[in-house]
Design a protein around this nucleic acid. Sequence first.
DNA 1: TATGAATGAGGTTTCATTCAT
DNA 2: AATGAATGAAACCTCATTCAT
Lengths: 234, 234, 234, 234
Amino acid sequence: MGIPERKEREKEQRREEIINAAQKVFFEKGLQAATMDEIAEAAELSKGTLYLYYKSKEDLYLAVMMRGIEILHNMFAEATSSQEPTVVQLMKLGDAYYEFFKQHRNYFRMFYFFQHPQFHKGVSEDMMMNCGEENQKVWKEVIGVIQRGIDEGVVRAELNPVETAVILWSSSNAIMTRMDTQMEYFKERMGVDLEEVLRKSNTLMLESILTEKAKRKHQALLMRSWPVAKVAVN
Amino acid sequence: MGIPERKEREKEQRREEIINAAQKVFFEKGLQAATMDEIAEAAELSKGTLYLYYKSKEDLYLAVMMRGIEILHNMFAEATSSQEPTVVQLMKLGDAYYEFFKQHRNYFRMFYFFQHPQFHKGVSEDMMMNCGEENQKVWKEVIGVIQRGIDEGVVRAELNPVETAVILWSSSNAIMTRMDTQMEYFKERMGVDLEEVLRKSNTLMLESILTEKAKRKHQALLMRSWPVAKVAVN
Amino acid sequence: MGIPERKEREKEQRREEIINAAQKVFFEKGLQAATMDEIAEAAELSKGTLYLYYKSKEDLYLAVMMRGIEILHNMFAEATSSQEPTVVQLMKLGDAYYEFFKQHRNYFRMFYFFQHPQFHKGVSEDMMMNCGEENQKVWKEVIGVIQRGIDEGVVRAELNPVETAVILWSSSNAIMTRMDTQMEYFKERMGVDLEEVLRKSNTLMLESILTEKAKRKHQALLMRSWPVAKVAVN
Amino acid sequence: MGIPERKEREKEQRREEIINAAQKVFFEKGLQAATMDEIAEAAELSKGTLYLYYKSKEDLYLAVMMRGIEILHNMFAEATSSQEPTVVQLMKLGDAYYEFFKQHRNYFRMFYFFQHPQFHKGVSEDMMMNCGEENQKVWKEVIGVIQRGIDEGVVRAELNPVETAVILWSSSNAIMTRMDTQMEYFKERMGVDLEEVLRKSNTLMLESILTEKAKRKHQALLMRSWPVAKVAVN
DNA sequence: TATGAATGAGGTTTCATTCAT
DNA sequence: AATGAATGAAACCTCATTCAT
């Protein structure tokens, strides 16, 4: 009794070990430069065994990435689970994403994967599906808060919550992507600090989706981003 | 007299021919999948000759990309050269970028290059520099209009024009990137049309950077994006 | 009492099931392309179990092939069991082989195996022996008829029945092999229909081994193959 | 002047060297077991260079095989170029093929390739075409002699020369194939010497296609194959 | 008896880059 | 300036077989 369970557990554990090894290598080298040989060696397993658990290098990559998505999901869930006002939660969401960016840069980078369909070739349908679902959960968190904001009259009623989520997330994401790869360029050639840009971008975005009433109420918060308090309300 | 000039001209011409060939191949296959063999064949030149003019495949890639930057530059210059109000010009800038996305998708895609530092390895300092400068010019166009907006009291005075340019461009760019690679996903799984999202995002961004006075004045324009005219001004 | 017998029966049954599964896979993919994984899956058994019953993939292949040999054996036995004249039986043997070729192409193809010693590596002595014996039985059928023909004065007395069997079978086999793999080539490049060639070859071979008396007697049958009746007897 | 010619010559020479190396390896190991590594090493060239000259291992295999076809072609041409009677030439053709089998066994074995379509996958259209044409030439030699025999009234008029060529060649080939792979089996298990079988088969085939007149004329030759002179003519 | 996880040795092909001519 | 032959280092994936349970 319990033998199949133990087997199952061991198998799951083995999968974890493989992901651990893969993660190490992918973090260091990226998808392309990483080789199955390296991963196998890191996992202290034969290459064949890797393919017993994952269909392709790309699948393995997604498996690692899923961890990142889960972490982000948890951070978002945390940000939206407090009792604080919805406006604050929206800000916290942005903060959480930035925190994720800083704390889990390697996972953040993996997300680029989706922007390069050329890499998708080796991915199995299953894995892609899993990833898509995991992704959905994260979106749900953001959409949920915005919807609540609308319901409470804090977010402009004419906005579609899903569209708005895409807008907010995309703009944050875009700037952080630049931070990841072009921080110096922007500092040296354009004289801007992208961290500052991100902060302001978030504030602008937030302002733009809040109702006048909410803006007025949370004026202090929104003013954070500007050196001189000039947030014009009317 | 004149002979060195002719030589120079011929050399330049050869460089153009090579770029033409490279462009054809890169457009079809992308950076990775494209091979120097293909490019050499397309150029009706030997592979060795390619290396006489460009240090690496990546350099060649950037050379092609520069054309895209120039095109975008021209489109931006066109958008900002009219006699129309600054607010209109800002909108036109967004429209121009979207137009670029639609008309020159292949160039747009090349820009992803910068987001993948793993591809940067073969790039020469020189080429990277050139690219950076060309890029600057485009930024200048955007920054210029925003600065003018500030000067005219149309754009909020507390905004830094460079930062604001980064914010505006990044958000547009982020959504178009998704349009390029995840259009179906967003339509099917989240029920949103990214084109619509882009339009709204642009409007929101614009609203958020305009002064109250300007917003009021151009209310009609800004309201375009929402089905029911609820754009609250105060 | 009876328990060991049941065990034995079950074991034999299991062997059959495995052969069924292997046959399915080998027919579809051939020896090389077939994998033990596929066979195991088709047999709804673990790969390890396969090796409990058969020593190697090649052994399994031979086990399947033996079925084909048996089928052919039965068809030959059928052809030679009638009360018809020996000459007719000889023709029927040829027809039977062609029928086998048409009805059991997959088995026919398996026989190629013997022509490729490079594939023999995994075969166990035992299995090879079994196969050899099964083969013998088939040869016996052919040889028997020829011997009878000699005894009856129908087949030329100076012929060795075994040698003659080899000659007859080999020539039929050679042409059918071409039919299997080069039908189109011969049709298109050489303008011959191999089916026609087979028919004529069989007739020629038959003619060449019959005594003059027998040829005369069965002239009508032998003339089947030629458009104009020119079978010259003297 | 002459430089491009020399280049061309060197290139052709290099192709020859590669074929030499490939031949060595293929002869030893066969198509499957041979590896490009081995061939490269034997050629004292890098693996990449191999692929510069031949598109695939299979193409290289065919290139080697072509040599065999040419040799056979020459031997056939030699056999049919004498001033001897057509009947003798027909016998000489059979002898030549057997000679080829004995002297160039390795090439003979390569011909099996065509019987296994599973191996054809890597072959380029071009190479397949070349091979087909080279093959044609050999067939032409055989067909030519048979046609001449018909014209001279030596070979039965109702026979189609192409079909007859296929019949003759196939039967010889079938027996030699058995000689190559099952010589011992037939000796030990069936008590026949395949060399003897081949000789007799050839005689039988020849007899069967000759006109009565020709058979009578060359009776002595035909009787070679039987221990006791019992060749019945009428 | 049955399992199925693990192995590990390959195997072909690709390509950016160099360099002698 | 132009050529193009040569390089050689990977890289991913497969699969028959074994063996501990």
